[in-house]
Design a protein around this nucleic acid. Sequence first.
DNA 1: CCACAAATCTTGTCACTGTCAAGATATACC
DNA 2: GGTATATCTTGACAGTGACAAGATTTGTGG
Lengths: 235, 235
Amino acid sequence: MPNLRVAEKPYHHGNLRKALIEAGLAVLEEVGHAGLTLRAVASRAGVSHAAPAHHFASAKGLLTVMATSAFARFEAALADGRAKTDPDPVSQIRVMGRVYLEFARAHPEQFRLMFTAAKLDWRDAELLAIARMTYRHLEEIARPAADAMGANSATARTNVEYLIWSVAHGFAHLAIEHQIPKPGAPVPTDVPDIGGLLFATAHRGQAGRVKRTKAATVTAGKRNLKPRKSKAERR
Amino acid sequence: MPNLRVAEKPYHHGNLRKALIEAGLAVLEEVGHAGLTLRAVASRAGVSHAAPAHHFASAKGLLTVMATSAFARFEAALADGRAKTDPDPVSQIRVMGRVYLEFARAHPEQFRLMFTAAKLDWRDAELLAIARMTYRHLEEIARPAADAMGANSATARTNVEYLIWSVAHGFAHLAIEHQIPKPGAPVPTDVPDIGGLLFATAHRGQAGRVKRTKAATVTAGKRNLKPRKSKAERR
DNA sequence: CCACAAATCTTGTCACTGTCAAGATATACC
DNA sequence: GGTATATCTTGACAGTGACAAGATTTGTGG
């Protein structure tokens, strides 16, 4: 007799994969990284402890999809914030800092997951795609500053991107790891205004002396993949 | 018969606490965070799996001391680098960036441990002391830049400290988590030159418009402590 | 319409983890 | 020199991710 009523725990969940991702994010938000176990996620989704193995090759597989989901929300917040902000270059840099800090403070566990390479499979196409999409915002935001400073080459522009990114990321990371504020200081509400600083320098007609880098090649990663047996074949 | 020969595994280790710290750092360097278990550390130190409990209340206790040790080496590297560098403000800011990035790349696991609040007991006096000592370098390094920009108040000076710290920390963190370099770009050798940028702006006679913050109060922590029973009483 | 293959989920098990309890051994102090 | 105390070991426990094998449902070809 096939199950027609959904409320009576059918043997097959329906869309367990999606449910596990949502359960994982919920567990992460509620009990934090330490309590995020495959068994807790399975339990929350109402399935047995081994069920996740049929949808994710390993814990890393689930974490990778969760991080992809987190990146998607971050990118959406960034796009939304930019759209609602004056297109002025300095304002755009500021809003990126604000969105970065707000996201990190609102979802510190997701933020840590997004930037913990060892827990994720960075060969994953979807994760790479959303990360690339997010970086494109940075490229757009940094471009006017780079131009104003006379940063013509791709390398010089990349350096401006790294600078703006480092300020926002470093400040947000130090904030959620309780390094900022320093003892006795008030809790800051905004990321340092690197945009104002860049354009203050640029208006002086100063050439692009933001940074100096030196060659070397890019590296690649290597991680596990594929679920169990000949069964489901995603991550 | 008391043991006089050291080589024959005496029942009492002699200085197990120190040995466990060194073993812990060695395991961390060799097999990484995932392989850093109390049992692996105990095994490496040549003692049973429960021996560490007599010197550290929990795994967090050992990690806290390991992080303290890591901070001490970082502070030493920073002090050494500064001493060997031109006292010029811009040079001092640059050397801090270089030391920061070099330490993070040479000891990424220790770097992550130092900045993972949830794994450490930040009420620990020794950890707080060495962190404070390290921060003092930042205060000294940032002071000339703050002065040059007309940052008179304590808050304004702190903002300059945060800016310089954020650039170094953010860049180093993004680098060890494989976010920098972006795909296809060369591996950078230096942190963005925020010092040059700060003084380029300052020379223009620009007032301190580095950042804007807004009040709020500081928060505190709460963690476990004390080893087992009435035995050893450290961490 | 129905057998059979594939997909989905469960139960059971394994080695490993941190922590605790209790006992064994060496040291120190009176 | 004997006894309290510090130090370390053995043993056990619940909880973990992963694997194996079986149960249930779905889907598809004949």
